[in-house]
Amino acid sequence: MNIITGLLFQATEADTLAQMLNEDTSMSFLEILTQGGVLMIPLFILSVLAIYVIAERWRKLENSKMDVAAMLNNIESLLKSGSQQRAIQYCEEFDKPLARILKSGIRRLGRPIRDIEEAIRNAGKKEIYYLEKRMNWLATIAGVAPLVGFTGTVTGMIQAFMDIQSLQGNVNPSVLAGGIWEALITTATGLIVGIIAYGFYNFLLGKINRMIFELENASADFVDLLQTPSRKKKQEA
């Protein structure tokens, strides 16, 4: 009888524990986040800002792409026909970094090649700045979000131990565990925001570097294109 009674008692305890777990896990994701405290507000703001920067930069980079070879061929045809103004107008039809860089070089045709290269270099620096715009925001969010999360956990743990002291240690373990997991919510949220921001920062930075490389190559090809006629003249002479 004692064995049966003990088994029944253990079964009752297991059912009670399962019921408690079901009640805890029935909380929605939003309800769990609201348990993180006041520091969840800056974490929410950081997450929204990160999403905005990621979407805005991705769209900017996608809109900046163009067929480099086709554009250089068209510009070469226009310049060979002596239509410098038409070449400038052709570049103005595209709201792209490469078009603006080449237009700055075409405007200085007739000047020494060094002046043209300098104009292209300055225009390239400006376009690189616009490509990298707001990327520092994403890097800052990747570093700050986990720190905000850790701060929330530390303050939550301090509050939990203050409650233990005020009750002179007579604290239900379930109450203590509840206070601890609520404090850890900010750390988990901060890490998630930071990881996402850091991952997309490196991803977007890679796309930017590739585009910068393409712009530099296209600029060098354009300068070679301008020097080709003079080279032919020298060879004929």
Rank of each mutant, 00 (worst) to 15 (best):
F9R: 13
Q10W: 14
Q10M: 15
T16E: 07
L17P: 00
L17T: 04
A18H: 08
Q19W: 07
L21I: 08
E23L: 11
E23I: 03
T25D: 07
T25H: 09
S26Q: 10
M27C: 06
S28Q: 12
S28P: 11
F29T: 05
L30G: 13
L30W: 07
L33R: 01
T34K: 11
Q35P: 00
G36M: 08
G37S: 11
I41S: 09
P42K: 10
L43C: 01
L43K: 03
S47Y: 08
S47T: 07
L49A: 12
I51C: 12
Y52C: 12
V53R: 05
E56K: 10
W58D: 02
R59A: 10
L61Q: 03
N63R: 15
S64M: 02
S64N: 00
D67I: 13
V68M: 02
V68P: 02
V68D: 02
A69P: 01
M71F: 06
N73Y: 08
N74V: 06
N74L: 10
I75F: 06
E76A: 01
L78Y: 03
S81P: 01
R86I: 09
A87Q: 01
Q89H: 14
Y90H: 11
C91F: 06
D95N: 15
K96M: 06
L98M: 00
L102C: 05
K103P: 03
G105S: 13
G105N: 04
R107P: 07
R107G: 15
R108V: 00
P112G: 15
I113E: 06
R114C: 10
R114I: 12
I116W: 01
E118P: 00
I120M: 09
R121A: 12
N122G: 03
A123Q: 02
A123N: 06
G124S: 07
G124K: 01
K125V: 08
K126P: 03
K126Q: 09
K126E: 08
Y130K: 10
L131N: 01
E132A: 02
K133D: 09
K133I: 14
K133R: 14
N136T: 12
A139K: 08
I141D: 04
